[in-house]
Amino acid sequence: MITFAEKYGKYVFVKPDDISATNDWFDSHGKKAVFFRKMVPGIRSFISIPAGMNKMPLLPFLILTALGSSFWTTVLTLAGYYLGENYQVVETTLAPYSNIFGGLVVVIVVGWFVEQRSSD
């Protein structure tokens, strides 16, 4: 994988050192990462990449994926059940915060791209 990063990494903003650091981090925190990242929208799919790169055994990966996804799905289902017909109130209350959160995500992503471009 490092040879791929050395050859094409600059086009997708990935350095060989980033791959090595990710592998080291996954070796230390892989099981927790798979379990907890399956609860986070937008990230849940991407945790499979470092798991595969680090040759995480399939059975533990599937079990942790099922547990993490089941936990998150249960939380969302219970929230929907208990909020019931008050969903409009919740939506109105959270709408301004979702705009702030969306703007913050854009700023972080743009900042990351600028940092990556300037460090090349």
Rank of each mutant, 00 (worst) to 15 (best):
L104T: 10
A66D: 01
T65Q: 04
G111P: 00
L104D: 06
I49D: 00
D27G: 11
N99D: 15
S118E: 08
A79Q: 04
V90W: 13
M53L: 12
K7H: 04
I63P: 05
S20M: 13
V110K: 07
P16Y: 00
S119D: 05
K55C: 13
D120R: 14
V14E: 07
D24P: 01
E85I: 03
M1A: 12
I2M: 09
W72I: 15
L94F: 08
V34F: 03
I2T: 12
S28I: 07
W72Y: 15
S69E: 03
M39F: 03
D120V: 10
L76C: 14
N99C: 13
V114R: 02
K31Q: 07
F4Y: 10
G42M: 02
D27F: 11
G68P: 02
L64P: 05
F36I: 08
G68Y: 04
V106T: 02
G84V: 00
K55F: 12
I43M: 11
L83D: 10
E115S: 14
E91Q: 13
A33E: 08
L58C: 09
T22D: 08
K31A: 06
S48N: 13
N23T: 12
Q116F: 10
V90R: 08
S69N: 07
I108W: 02
D24M: 10
L76V: 11
Q88E: 06
K7Y: 02
G103N: 05
N23D: 14
F26T: 03
S118K: 14
I47Y: 02
L59I: 03
T74P: 07
R37M: 15
V109N: 07
A79V: 03
K10H: 09
K31F: 11
A5P: 00
V40D: 04
L64Q: 04
G80N: 06
A21D: 10
D17K: 10
A33D: 09
Q88I: 07
E85H: 04
H29K: 07
Y81H: 12
E115N: 13
M56F: 12
F26M: 05
S118N: 14
G42L: 03
P57M: 09
L64V: 01
W72C: 15
F101M: 12
S118V: 14
L104R: 04
V90L: 14
M39H: 01
T3C: 05
D17L: 12
S69G: 10
W112R: 06
A21Y: 03
P16G: 00
L94S: 04
A21L: 10
G102E: 06
F36E: 04
Y82V: 06
K32W: 15
I49N: 00
V34C: 00
L104V: 09
G30V: 04
S69L: 09
I2L: 13
V14L: 13
D27H: 09
